[in-house]
C-alpha cells in the first residue's frame, strides 16, 4: 500500500440495502442457552456415568443387563443420552459452521451430522428401553 490516505475504504462498510429488512431472528441466544443448559445437566450425569462404567468394566454382560434393568439407571441413561447427544450436536454444528466455507457443503455436512446424531439417539434409547424391560 503506497499511500494509505488514498485508499478507498468503502469495502469496510456493509451495504444498507443488504442489511435492511433482515430484522432479528429473535432466537439468537437459543443455541447458546441450550448449550449451557445441557452442559449443566451433563456435570452430574457424566460423574454418575463414569462411576457406573467403572463398576461394570470388569463384569460380564449379565451385570450390565442387571444394571440397566433398574428403572433409576435406565432413567439416568436416557437423561444422559438426550443431554449428551444434544450438546454434541450443538457443538459440532458450530465446528462445521466455522470450518466448512462452501454454503451448500456446509448445509449438507450439518444435516448429515444431525441425521447421524438422531439415529444414534434412537438406537441408544431403544437399547436402554430393551435393557430396562429385559431383566
Amino acid at each position: 500500500m503506497a499511500n494509505p490516505n488514498s485508499v478507498d475504504v468503502a469495502v469496510m462498510r456493509s451495504m444498507l440495502s443488504r442489511a435492511r429488512g433482515l430484522g432479528s431472528a429473535k432466537s439468537g441466544t437459543a443455541h447458546w442457552w441450550a448449550q449451557r443448559v445441557t452442559a449443566i445437566a451433563l456435570v452430574p450425569l457424566a460423574l454418575w456415568f463414569v462411576a457406573s462404567v467403572i463398576g461394570l468394566s470388569h463384569q460380564p454382560r449379565a451385570a450390565v443387563l442387571h444394571w440397566g434393568a433398574h428403572p433409576l439407571n435406565a432413567a439416568l441413561l436416557l437423561a444422559l443420552l438426550v443431554m449428551l447427544l444434544h450438546h454434541m450436536q450443538l457443538g459440532l454444528s458450530v465446528v462445521i459452521e466455522d470450518y466448512v466455507h462452501v454454503p451448500g457443503r456446509r448445509l449438507m455436512a450439518i444435516l448429515a451430522m444431525k441425521a447421524i446424531t438422531a439415529l444414534l439417539l434412537f438406537a441408544s434409547v431403544i437399547s436402554v428401553v430393551r435393557l430396562a424391560v429385559s431383566f
Binding site: 454382560r61 450390565v64 443387563l65 440397566g68 441413561l77 444414534l120 438406537a123 441408544s124 431403544i126 437399547s127 436402554v128 430393551r130 435393557l131 429385559s134
Partner: peptide, 8 residues
C-alpha cells in the same frame, strides 16, 4: 452407543 446397542 455401540456399547449400549451391543449390551441390548
Amino acid at each position: 452407543v455401540w456399547w449400549l446397542v451391543a449390551a441390548a
